[in-house]
Amino acid sequence: MKQIPQILYLLLFLSCPFFAFSQIGSAETQVNVLIGQVISIEVTQPSVNIDMGLSAHYINGSSSGQQTNHIKVTSNNGYEINVRATTEYFSLNGNMTTLPVNTIMIATSLGDDLTGSGSAAPASLQINSPVPLSTSNTNIVSSGEGESARGFHVTYSIPASQTSNYLNKEPGTYTTNVIYTVVPQ
């Protein structure tokens, strides 16, 4: 007779998981991903020099040399990069001169994937290079696809065909500001 209560206890113990499972319910949640327009641009070298201090510069032209990853862009969709000067002529010591900024050529080339993953550039990426500096927005890059972080190399140059504009000028540092803008495509 003692075996019957023990068997009942054993059956009760074995049926406990069934009772526990009957107490399980479920619930759900909705996960929302909010995608906004992400677009930014950065110029990594705030000042760039082109030397015109040698006679060879007036014969052959001169350049800043390649400014590595000079422009850094992030855009989650297609984008365009434009460049323009703030004034039509260079300034010297804060005074406007007659030296036109369109004597400068801007050559852009593909830079590095700055995410560190080594991603290739989108197939839709187009680089318009070289272009003369102007006070009008001039397109230098367009891409139908976004990228997390892409660099572009830039070289500023005075071609030999423009060096005569630099003759008979007062020595000094001639300046203009160059503005790069990135806009959604």
Rank of each mutant, 00 (worst) to 15 (best):
P132C: 04
E88L: 02
F18L: 15
N177L: 00
L110Q: 13
T97V: 05
S124G: 05
A120T: 06
T175S: 13
E28C: 04
S161I: 00
K2H: 15
P184Q: 03
I104Q: 08
E28M: 09
V141Q: 13
N93E: 14
G61R: 02
Y58K: 00
L110M: 12
K169G: 02
L125E: 14
A20V: 13
M1D: 14
Y156W: 10
P122K: 00
A85T: 06
N139F: 02
L114Q: 01
I59Y: 15
K169T: 09
V101S: 15
H57P: 03
A27C: 10
I104P: 11
T86Q: 12
S63D: 11
T175Y: 15
G172V: 01
G94C: 03
V178Y: 12
Q30F: 09
L92D: 14
F152E: 14
Y9E: 15
L10D: 12
S157R: 11
K72A: 11
S157D: 08
M105N: 05
S47E: 13
L14K: 15
P5Y: 02
Y180P: 01
T74G: 05
S164E: 11
G116S: 05
L14H: 14
Y58D: 02
S91N: 10
S142P: 06
L34G: 07
S129T: 12
G151A: 07
A85N: 14
F13K: 07
N139K: 03
I41C: 08
T173I: 02
R150Y: 12
T86V: 04
I140F: 01
S75P: 09
T115D: 03
I106H: 06
L14N: 15
S75R: 05
Y174P: 03
S63I: 01
P132M: 06
S91E: 06
G144Y: 02
P184Y: 09
I35Q: 09
N95T: 03
S134F: 12
A85M: 10
T29M: 12
R84D: 04
L11C: 14
S143C: 09
N49Y: 10
S47V: 06
P130C: 01
S75W: 07
E80P: 00
M105S: 08
Q23A: 05
Q37E: 07
A120Y: 11
N49E: 09
H70M: 02
N102F: 10
G118C: 03
G144I: 00
I39V: 12
G111C: 00
Y174H: 04
E28W: 13
A120V: 05
R84P: 05
S164T: 02
F21V: 03
S157M: 04
Y174A: 00
Y156R: 08
S47L: 13
S63T: 08
K169S: 04
G151W: 01
T115C: 00
N49F: 04
T97C: 09
S143I: 04
A160Y: 05
P130D: 05
D51S: 10
V141H: 13
I140D: 07
G94Q: 02
S62L: 10
